[in-house]
Each structure stands twice: as C-alpha cells, then as structure tokens.
Design a protein around this nucleic acid. Sequence first.
RNA 1: GGGUAGGUGGUCGAGUGGUUAAUGGCACCAGACUGUAAAUCUGGCGACGAGAGUCUACGUUGGUUCGAAUCCAACCCUGCCCA
Length: 403
Amino acid sequence: MDIIEELEKRDYIEQLTHDKELREELNKGPIRFYVGIDPTADSLHIGHFISLMIASYLQKAGHQPIILIGGGTATIGDPSGKTDMRKMLSREELDKNAAALKKQIERFVTFEGDNGAIIVNNADWLLDLNYIDFMREIGSKFSVNKMLAAECYKARLETGLTFFEMGYMLLQSYDFLYLHDKYGCKLEIGGNDQWSNIIGGVELIRKIGADDSYGLTFKLLTTAEGKKMGKTEKGALWLNPERTSPYEFYQYWRNIGDSEVRKVLSMLTFIPMDEVEKLSSYKDERINETKKLLAYEITKLIHGEEEAKKAEEASNALFGNGGDISNMPSTKIEDENISILDALVLTNMASSKSQAKTLISQGGISLNDNKIEDVQYKLSSKDFEKGYAILKKGKKVFHKLEK
RNA sequence: GGGUAGGUGGUCGAGUGGUUAAUGGCACCAGACUGUAAAUCUGGCGACGAGAGUCUACGUUGGUUCGAAUCCAACCCUGCCCA
C-alpha cells in the first residue's frame, strides 16, 4: 500500500492534483513537501493538527517536511472563507510566535535525521520583493478571470474583496515556487480551504517550465452538521496547555458526538484502521468507552502521556468514583470568605457577576456537591474542610478552590 | 468622479420619534431526559448592584425635541450601477 492509499484509507484526502504522477513521484523515492502555518498566535490550534498528522505520515514514509511559517503572508490574511482582515503583527511578535510553534510541531514531525523537517519563514523572501519585478514575473502568470471564478473568492465578491487580499494567492503561489527552486519542494499540502491557493502554486511552477509540482488537500474536521470542530466557548481549542489546559482538551474529545467518533479516531490518532473500525462500530455504552480511549489518545499525542493520564484521572475523579482530584483545574484564593459570585468570576466559570447570578438561580452551580441556591452565599472555612472546595457548573465544568 | 442602497448586540437580521436593553433565527450557557453522546422540551443570554435600580449601547461627531437606533447636518466606511 502506498502512502496516498494509506492516507485515503484514513479518510484524510479531499483532492489532489495529477493523481497518477503524484503517486508515482511519492513511490519513486523521498521528496520534499511543504505545509504552511500562519503565525497569528503563539500556539497552534486544532485546525493545524491534521496538517501535522499528514506531515507526520509522509515523513514516516521517508519524505521530508518543510514547515513554512507564514511570517510574510500573515500580514495580509487569507481571504479564503473568512470575512475579517487580520491585524498586522510586528516582526518581533512573529518571531516569538514562530519559536513557540516550533516546539509544538516537534510533537508530530522530527527535526532529526536525513529527512528531518526544515522550518522556513516566508518573511525571509517576501519582505524584500520588488513590486514591479513581482508583477512582471508572477503577476503576469495569473488570470483574474480564473481567480474570480474560484470558489474561495465567490463569497467575498459579494461583500467586497480588496486587491490587497487577492494578492494572497500570488504570494502563496510564489512561496511554493521559491521552495521548489531552492529546496526542490514538489508538493504542497493544506486544508481543503486552501485548494485554490495550492493549485495557484502548482500551476505557477508548471507555467514557468517545471512539471513536478503537485498539490494535495485534506478534509477539514467538521461535525455531522458541517460546523468546524474544535471550537469551545472560549474560542479555539489550542494545543498550548496554557491556553487550553490538558484537562479541558481531554474533556473536549471525551464529549464529542457518537457520529464523530470514527472520523476523529481516524484523523487524529495513529490507531490502526481496523481497530478504528471496530471501536467506532460500538453502540450506546460501549461507544462511550471508546470516547475515553479516544480522548486519552489525542491528549497523549499533544500533551504527552503524563498529562493525558492526569487529565484522565481528573475526569474519573469527578465523573466516576473517587480517584485523584489533584489534576483538575484549580485556583488559589486569598480569602476563604469569598462570595460565591466572586468565586465564579475569579475561576472564569462565569464571565460576569450577572452571569454568575443567572447560573445560580437556574440551579447550575454546586459547591462540594451541594447545590447553591442563595445568590449571596459566602464561602467559609467549613467549605474548605478538606483543604479545598470544589465548584461545579452544570454537569461537566469543575474547578477546585484552594486556600 | 456621478448615481444609489446601506452601516443595529457574538453572528444573521427586524425595528424607522416615547412600555425599545432593542422582535426573531443561529451560536452560546443552564435545567429536564440521557451514556460526560445526539435529538427534543424549558429557561437564560450588555455591565454594575443583594435588591429597588443605575450606567453604557444601534458607524463617528454635532444638532432638533420634554424624549432619538428612529428626524436633520457633516464626516468615515461598505455594496451595487455608471464613468
């Protein structure tokens, strides 16, 4: 089975260019491929997860990943899909973010060995481009008619699209050309929302004379209703433990819908496919067990075995019977006589006191397993008999208060 | 540059002088039911306040009025058509 078949089997692939040639190329021997990541934050989020999984599979098959940090293109913002223009980031912020991202990337691809990953930053070549030269050499190869027909611009055509943003495609295509010339990079991979940008690069290289450029896109992680997965009430599901704690991360996957189980096992874990098929075919209580395994595996992949165990234990302690509760999210408080409202705001369980009151009056808050009914309740030493107090919001959100 | 339609809460979208903190959908939160699932039903969803209540909000800035998201003026921004 070749690598493309393997990826197909795991349901990753959405589209690819030059089907036959690409397979041959990949089978012929190691090639270099690239995946782009925009350093708009100091952490990857779940959307990048799949790119890195695929990069990992390709690397294991002997190919060499080039991770492109979009330091130059991040200042523009990809108009595909979204409506907002991204804010500009300073060079220092971008460098800082890029360094933080590298650490996370290391969990998926290795930087060691003959086919160790290479990290490049497109700010290094994009920022010095000369506009006139660029327009003559690159701009002349793009048809506006064709670009406007592309699916990714259609939505923007109705609400407005600036030339500035349209240039994104040219720059991303130029990245591929640059990597092709400098590193012999032959393949660009990305989410399916990148399809237009990717074929832009593939065609640019072919127009200039080469015939060994390819593109591959993978499916985006969506729920059965077609919504993007990995969104939490606090925003994205981050891979950085300071932004999304391993416990929250674990809980997110523990709580996914039955219909998502197969997809998530297949795309976000390395569990063999026949095992995946078996695990996801279960019904009712057994599939609930599968979710435990799934949450553990994914958390392990991102945060390591130790953190995954801690998250699992914290969950068992709270939802099951007993167990070690030392790993649940906790906050140290100065004054044990804090009001319940302040405690809820302090722990971020409520965004405002008003919201905290609503939660209490609807019966959504309990302290040490006793439902709180009085909005004015003040904690006292008897709530800290064990040395801590456990606040619970709804059925699933726990937080430990420590003195 | 000319004409024209617009800019409303997380989002979409009503409202066109006074019970309008602003209908409704979506998103989100909680309750019931369950398997830490889905679906369904119920409640909530600007901030502050224990509460009565107070404050801040309908592109920006001024104005008219007892009273403005709603009327007027200027400005900024966006779509569409023409050039």
